[in-house]
C-alpha cells in the first residue's frame, strides 16, 4: 500500500471517529436527560417546553436532569482535554489532572471556599483554578529543579497530591460542617449541580477549550523536545505555562462542579490516542467529545444501575479507570515506553 492510500485510510478513520463520537455524545445526552429514578420520555420533555416547565416532569427536566447532564458532558470534556494537554506538555502519558495533583489543588481550594461560605458562582471556579494551577506549577517547577525523569515526575505528583489531600482533610477535621459536602466531593458526583455553579464554569471551560484548539500546532511542536521547539522560534517556558494554566482552568472548573473525578483525564486521551494518534488537532477535539460522552454515560449509570439508590459517579469511573491504568502500566512495561 502506497503512502497516499495510507493517508486516505487514516483520514477516513478519523472521519468515522468523529461521526461515532458525535452520535455517542447525542445518545449519552439523551439517556442522561431521560433516564433516572423517574424516567422522562422525549415527548414529555418537548411538551414541557410548551407549558413552561410547569409539570412535575418539566421541573425535573429543567432543574435536575438538564443541569446535571450538561455538567457531566462539560466536566468530561474539560478533564479529558486537560489530561491530553498535561500529558503533552510534561511529556508523560501517565500524567493526568488526578495523578499529578491538579485535581487535589482544586479540591483544596473548593474545600477552603466551602469553609468560607462560598458555595458557587464565578468565585468558586476561579479559586478552584488557582488551586489547580498552583499544584501543577509546583509539580512542574519541582521536576525542573531536580531534573526529574518522567517516572520521578509522577512520584512528585503523588507527593503533591498526598500533601494537598492532607491539607483538605485538616480543614475538614477542624471545620466539621465542611465534611458533610466533602465525602461526595472526594469521589465526585453531579447531584448538587445548580445553574449558579454550572454557568461560570461552563463559560471558563468553553473559553479555555476554544483557545486550546487554536494552539494545537504549538502543543505538537513542544513534543519535539525543548531545544528543537526553541530552535523553531517557540518561547517554550511561556507556552508551557500557558498550556498548564489552561489545563488548570479546565480541571479546576470541573472539580468545582463535580468534585474529584479521577481517571477521565487519563483514560480518554489514551484511548483516543490509540485510535487517532497524538496529533493535537485531532487529539483535543476527540478527547473533548469522548470525554463528555464517557462521563455522561457513567453518571447515567450511577443514577440508574442501583435505582432508586444512587452511587457517586466517581466510584464507577474509578472502577473503570483503575484497571485501565494497570493495563497501561503492563503495556508500557512499567512506564519506560509510555512517555
Amino acid at each position: 500500500m502506497n503512502s497516499s492510500s495510507k493517508s486516505c485510510l487514516a483520514n477516513k478513520r478519523i472521519k468515522i471517529l468523529y461521526t461515532v463520537g458525535f452520535l455517542l455524545l447525542v445518545v449519552s445526552a439523551l439517556l442522561g436527560i431521560t433516564l433516572g429514578t423517574t424516567s422522562l420520555s422525549i415527548s414529555e420533555i418537548v411538551e414541557s417546553f410548551k407549558n413552561g416547565f410547569s409539570t412535575a416532569g418539566g421541573k425535573i427536566f429543567l432543574y435536575v436532569r438538564l443541569p446535571r447532564t450538561a455538567a457531566s458532558l462539560i466536566c468530561g470534556s474539560a478533564l479529558a482535554v486537560s489530561g491530553a494537554v498535561i500529558q503533552g506538555v510534561i511529556a508523560n502519558r501517565l500524567a493526568s489532572p488526578s495523578i499529578i495533583g491538579v485535581n487535589s489543588g482544586a479540591g483544596l481550594a473548593v474545600t477552603l471556599c466551602t469553609a468560607l461560605g462560598i458555595y458557587g458562582g464565578l468565585r468558586l471556579s476561579l479559586f478552584a483554578f488557582l488551586g489547580a494551577f498552583t499544584a501543577v506549577m509546583a509539580v512542574s517547577l519541582l521536576a525542573r529543579r531536580i531534573g526529574a525523569s518522567r517516572g520521578t515526575l509522577i512520584l512528585l505528583g503523588v507527593a503533591v497530591n498526598s500533601f494537598l489531600n492532607a491539607l483538605s482533610d485538616s480543614v475538614v477535621t477542624f471545620i466539621p460542617e465542611v465534611g458533610v459536602m466533602s465525602n461526595d466531593f472526594k469521589v465526585g458526583e453531579f447531584s448538587s449541580v445548580t445553574y449558579s455553579r454550572l454557568l461560570p464554569a461552563t463559560v471558563l471551560i468553553s473559553l479555555s477549550i476554544i483557545i486550546l484548539f487554536t494552539l494545537t500546532n504549538e502543543l505538537d511542536v513542544l513534543t519535539l523536545g525543548e531545544d528543537n521547539a526553541r530552535s523553531l522560534g517557540m518561547n517554550t517556558s511561556l507556552m508551557r505555562t500557558l498550556f498548564l494554566m489552561l489545563a488548570a482552568v479546565l480541571a479546576g472548573c470541573a472539580v468545582s462542579l463535580a468534585g474529584l473525578l479521577s481517571f477521565v483525564g487519563l483514560i480518554v486521551p489514551h484511548a483516543v490516542r490509540r485510535v487517532a494518534g497524538s496529533k493535537a488537532s485531532r487529539l483535543l477535539p476527540l478527547s473533548a467529545i469522548f470525554g463528555g460522552a464517557f462521563v455522561c454515560l457513567c453518571d447515567t449509570g450511577a443514577r440508574t444501575l442501583f435505582s432508586p439508590y444512587e452511587i457517586p459517579v466517581g466510584i464507577i469511573m474509578a472502577f473503570l479507570g483503575a484497571p485501565f491504568f494497570v493495563f497501561i502500566l503492563i503495556k508500557g512495561k512499567g512506564g519506560h515506553t509510555l512517555a
Binding site: G225, D227, G277
Partner: peptide
C-alpha cells in the same frame, strides 16, 4: 525575535525525541 532567528538558522539537537507523528 526568536521567530526571526528561527527563520534564519535551523538547529537540530543531539538528543531527538521520537514524537508520535
Amino acid at each position: 525575535s526568536r521567530q526571526q532567528t528561527a527563520q534564519k538558522i535551523a538547529y537540530l539537537s543531539q538528543g531527538k525525541n521520537v514524537p508520535d507523528m
